[in-house]
Nucleic acid binder design. Structure first.
Lengths: 337, 337
DNA sequence: CTTAGCACTTAGGTGCGCCGAGTGCTAACC
DNA sequence: GGTTAGCACTCGGCGCACCTAAGTGCTAAG
């Protein structure tokens, strides 16, 4: 009853189950995989695996299916991911290269990833931990209405129209802009607030109110950057994949739409590990996702934002992980330009 | 066999079926609704209704369910929508008032509407048929990189970073901006292209290339405005509503995600009718939505953009239509500020 | 440790009969 | 003519018994 063979059996069970959707029995196992032993031996192995909580039998006279714990071991055992096919790589490259602004890039990324994996794909907007202020623009739209634009070093542009307490002139606005630029240029977005407080003193009195309003707007724009957002695609895949479980699809859709849950989960996974990180079913702290697995990895210069997929626990982990990793790499590369 | 009573019978069938989910028979009908006649008479009426294709029996010994055509007649017969409850109206008001920028408003609108109706809610971005150029801004980010911002009279802001063929100075850019502003200020977004062509001549030769690039960018930004976009929420409701038809949910999710289909449908409905417009099941030209109904109406000053919901044909049309209408009204009101 | 053999379990498919809801039709009624 | 009561008829769904196939655990031998 060798340890390595037992793992081999687990691997076989997972693989068979993933693409047959049916509990797999000892006999079928020895037929499809040429392990050098008889079905009786396999049965013994399976008994042990069941004791260890790695597989279960849905009912007495059925084959076994992997538990979450079983998938976990399977995934951990996975040493090297085979790279994608040349065709897939080409598809990734051509699709991602056509994009220019960040929204477009992320949009294409999720579509791509969802098609590649047949799962729901999600991607966080890049974290902006060290993003700095690159440019500030104030545009006078009406006597007391100003468009405030904040551009960060990551190329992200956020804008917003605000009403200032008193009418201002183009002149004033220009002056204020110089002021803010001087104060904030190169400042990390997260530290805008403190810098703003410092500089109040140097502003002409009659513009203080306006300056305060503008400052608040800038803070908020920086805040939009900090507060994470995400993009997703391929929700239709959920319907197909969970075909037999129409009950579980509701909560998952809700979680996706709420975003908050997904975002928190992704942040947690970010700390988990370098490389592709996997959360399987019940490992997942949020009840609504207890039937689902998430495969994600970081991307970008410091790999601090996540891209990944969400699907049923019964999924093809090796291929999915490979796809996620590949897409993350190409995405990082594209963002470097 | 009076005509009015037959309509009454149809109405009763639709109402019963909508909230029982089960075929409704003649006996049950006379019990729940006090029509002054016996079940036999109702049976005769039902036979006629069936001949007219307004209802069908799933099998010989079952009650009847409305056909798409039946729903259609039911909806057309609906003369006055009862207004929402005070609580609902208050909810709408408080929720919508907190928003400021357009994205936020639309986002809240769909969430609200999806909760109100328990369906998937969608809203088109406001059409900009007569939107004009209000402001143009060029921001020099790097020697040959320019942020192009286009602001329309509707307050919509679109921006994009482009690379120009040759390095430009702040000075040049300022000059070009004046030029474009002069040429385009007050121009309808849809007519930008023609105006651009006219004005090429007056530009200094060494800036022609740059100007062309900037012009293209502006056209594209105007195009983003023209090309419709939409926001949606409540996809989880789909899973709940179509509980028994997990097969049909896939195509619907795809259609929603693709957006193109939905947008085209909404535009068609815009022309259909003033007031709340309804498309029922097979009336719908797109196969993927043949199991679904769409209830939508225009909003905004010229009611040219649509807001509405999508759900199974078996839905509570009166309440849904009332909710859609109410939300559209509040939305129009909020946008007027 | 492995294997063959065997008794045991059980989900799922099939055939059967019954019940109830619902219909269409006919003949009487107003 | 429209309305009603009565009745024969149809079928889907349910419960039941039965059987089969797949799969297991265990024991005893290799």
């Amino acid at each position: 009853m060798s340890e390595p063979r037992r793992l081999e059996v687990l691997r076989a069970i997972v693989e068979d189950y993933v693409h047959s959707r049916e509990p797999v029995g000892s006999k079928a196992l020895v037929e499809r995989h040429h392990l050098g032993v008889s079905s009786a031996t396999i049965r013994n192995d399976m008994a042990v695996l069941e004791e260890e909580g790695l597989i279960v039998a849905p009912h007495t006279s059925a084959g076994r299916i992997p538990t979450d714990k079983g998938y976990r071991l399977f995934v951990d055992q996975l040493s090297d991911l085979k790279p994608l096919s040349a065709a897939e790589r080409r598809a990734i490259q051509t699709l991602l290269e056509g994009a220019d602004n960040i929204d477009d890039i992320l949009d294409r990324t999720v579509r791509l990833l969802s098609q590649l994996t047949n799962q729901v794909a999600v991607v966080q907007y890049p974290h902006l931990g060290n993003a700095k202020v690159r440019h500030i623009e104030f545009v006078l739209l009406a006597p007391a209405q100003v468009l405030v634009v904040l551009i960060s070093t990551t190329g992200r542009v956020e804008q917003r129209v605000i009403t200032v307490p008193a009418p201002v002139t183009e002149q004033d606005l220009h002056e204020l802009r110089q002021h803010f630029l001087q104060t904030l240029a190169g400042t990390t977005l997260t530290r805008i607030t403190s810098h703003l407080a410092d500089a109040q003193a140097t502003i002409p009195v009659h513009l203080r109110g306006t300056a305060a309003a503008l400052g608040r707007a800038l803070e908020q724009l920086a805040g939009i950057n900090r507060e994470d957002r995400m993009v997703m695609a391929g929700t239709a895949n959920l319907a197909r994949a969970t075909g037999d479980f129409p009950l579980t699809i509701g909560p998952i859709l809700e979680a996706l739409e709420e975003q908050v849950v997904m975002l928190r989960l992704l942040s947690e996974m970010e700390q988990d590990a370098k490389g592709v990180s996997v959360r399987i079913g019940s490992e997942n702290p949020y009840g609504s996702l207890s039937e689902a697995s998430v495969v994600a990895t970081g991307y970008g210069p410091d790999a601090s934002a996540m891209v990944g997929i969400l699907g049923p626990t019964r999924m093809d982990y090796p291929n999915t992980m490979a796809a996620v990793r590949a897409v993350a790499r190409y995405l990082s590369r594209v963002l470097n330009n």
